[in-house]
């Protein structure tokens, strides 16, 4: 699979004399069309990494290539054309007075002619289920609705890569599920590459691959099942334990030895049923 993003030996310090860099010699590739989850506890450097990819933090050491373009101060705008980002707090990213204005902002910046812009904005709002809210003030929306508007803004500019920087962490469970379903749907329809920076175990479980960042370094890279089999270490990695891992720990404390590999809920249900029936 072709790489849409290549990161080589990326190091970043917030201040030139920081003894401990926020990112320390990080290298990885992102395959076109994949869903990549980046996990790590608060302060591990994962948001710094996301911002570096978009040229929001000018790193001095290393190399980032997005869609074949090497990120430099000269190419930063070309690179940003290819990446859409949604941040944690929906209130911090609104610029428009109405939902429609806000969705149009990215297109206005790109000087898209009005006759092309209007239908694109409408289509984007419809896609995220916010067409009825076009003339509402963004501040009157719920958190989940705000994140959907942010997503519409990204749909409108049709980037190749979508970065979610803890974009669901402030939503209620229903809002979180709706948002992830929407992203999944967009990804399938538009062949988006998705990078999600998250603590949410369900969000990470849906990824093709998980990168683990700790203390500014890339410490692990595997598919979700392999990562989830790490058991109690997951807490240190900034993730919650999957329910099956919690249940296994509780069973072990009661003298019952479950299989060591990661089991999905239905696999574990099957195993428990088999064991209980085996009398």
């Amino acid at each position: 699979m072709a790489n849409i993003i290549e990161v080589k030996h990326l190091t970043y310090r917030y201040q030139a004399d920081d003894p401990r860099p926020a990112l320390d010699d990080v290298s990885f590739d992102v395959h076109a069309g994949e869903w990549l989850a980046i996990v790590g506890h608060n302060g591990s450097g994962k948001s710094t990494l996301a911002k570096s990819l978009d040229g929001l933090l000018p790193f001095t050491t290393g190399e980032v290539t997005v869609g074949g373009i090497q990120l430099t101060p000269e190419t930063v705008w070309q690179v940003r054309e290819k990446i859409g980002m949604i941040f944690q707090n929906p209130d911090n990213q609104f610029v428009g007075a109405t939902v429609a204005d806000d969705v149009a902002f990215g297109l206005e910046n790109r000087q898209i002619p009005r006759e092309e812009m209007v239908p694109r904005v409408e289509a984007a709002m419809a896609q995220v289920g916010m067409a009825d809210f076009a003339h509402r003030e963004p501040s009157s929306l719920s958190g989940g609705q705000k994140q959907r508007v942010a997503l519409a803004g990204i749909v409108a500019i049709a980037p190749d890569v979508l970065i979610l920087d803890e974009a669901t962490s402030m939503l209620d469970p229903q809002g979180r599920r709706d948002m992830l379903n929407l992203v999944r749907q967009l990804r399938a329809e538009r062949h988006l590459t998705v990078i999600s920076i998250t603590h949410d175990i369900d969000e990470a479980a849906g990824a093709d691959r998980v990168l683990v960042i700790d203390d500014g370094r890339l410490v692990d890279e595997a598919d979700p099942a392999t990562i989830f089999a790490r058991g109690d270490q997951l807490i240190k990695l900034g993730l919650d334990l999957p329910f099956t891992a919690k249940l296994k720990t509780a069973l072990r404390q009661r003298g019952i030895e479950p299989p060591a590999t990661y089991q999905t809920a239905s696999e574990m249900e099957e195993w428990l049923w088999q064991s209980l029936s085996n009398t």
């Binding site: 329910f243 919690k246 249940l247 720990t249 069973l251 009661r254 019952i256 049923w273 209980l276």
Partner: peptide, 30 residues
């Protein structure tokens, strides 16, 4: 999770709400 097992015929004295409560009841009938 307990309800899925209930659908297969496992009966609970009281529906477990936490992993600890579920493990307690599982251990009893293990």
């Amino acid at each position: 999770f307990a309800q899925k097992l209930a659908a297969r015929g496992v009966t609970w004295q009281q529906l477990p709400l936490t992993a600890e409560q579920l493990a307690d009841q599982l251990a009893e009938r293990w």
